[in-house]
């Protein structure tokens, strides 16, 4: 990819995660040519700003990268109020009740596959393929910070107010992006995540989310 980058094109998200973990390990140990940025994708790993592209290109086929990474990443629990504007729509798409959406989503163990879209925005895998949902046909111009949302079989959490086309199922108050923290992102690739259902605080629940949904139609 260009003069000084390589895109490793892999067969599955699990393989991409394993290669990403291996690249980080080797970079940490200093046994690989310097790489400015390692960017995992859904089924790829981008090596950006590689000081010696040819040498790593020759070396990569000789690496033995074990299958899917063991589930040993750090575990983060995220409290969620499941009151998102699209919770009903998601329940309709899944053909279940809203309560069942909450049960399935909070019952699964999720894992950060990769980050992107915005600083601290993590793409979480963990929902079985049967629970796939499409993006909204018309993205919202403004999604509130902390919105927990679905697209494909991914879960994402908006770190700050931004436009967005994912289906909103809930909200959290946990700061996803904090420059005072190292790293600033709460959810880094490999992190395991559990969502813990919370009751909405009295009086504030779905109001602000409804206004967002009105804005979409406006």
């Amino acid at each position: 990819m260009g003069e000084d980058s390589l895109l490793l094109d892999l067969d599955s998200p699990a393989e991409a995660q394993a290669w990403h973990a291996e690249l980080l390990r080797r970079r940490g140990a200093g046994t690989v040519t310097p790489i400015r940025d390692i960017v995992p994708g859904e089924k790829t790993v981008l090596l950006y700003g590689v000081s010696d592209v040819d040498s790593i290109h020759r070396e990569l086929p000789r690496w033995s990268v074990s299958g899917p990474t063991a589930d040993d990443g750090p575990l983060v629990e995220i409290p969620v109020r499941y009151d998102g504007a699209d919770l009903g729509a998601v329940a309709g798409l899944w053909g279940v009740s809203e309560e069942e959406v909450v049960r399935v989503h909070s019952g699964a163990e999720h894992r950060v596959a990769f980050c992107g879209f915005a600083p601290g925005f993590a793409y979480l895998t963990g929902l079985p393929g049967a629970y796939q949902v499409p993006r909204l046909a018309v993205p919202r111009t403004s999604v509130p910070a902390g919105s927990v949302a679905l697209a494909g079989t991914y879960t994402g959490i908006y770190p700050r107010v931004s436009p967005g086309g994912w289906q909103l199922i809930g909200r959290t108050d946990v700061p996803l992006w904090d420059l005072e923290r190292e790293p600033a992102a709460l959810l880094t690739p490999g992190t395991r995540v559990r969502f813990v259902p919370q009751e909405p605080a009295p009086g504030e629940a779905p109001v602000s989310v409804r206004s967002t949904s009105a804005e979409r139609r406006a």
Partner: peptide, 11 residues
Amino acid sequence: RYGHAGLGVPR
């Protein structure tokens, strides 16, 4: 701003 692209931070 380099070294943070894996967390979604543009260059």
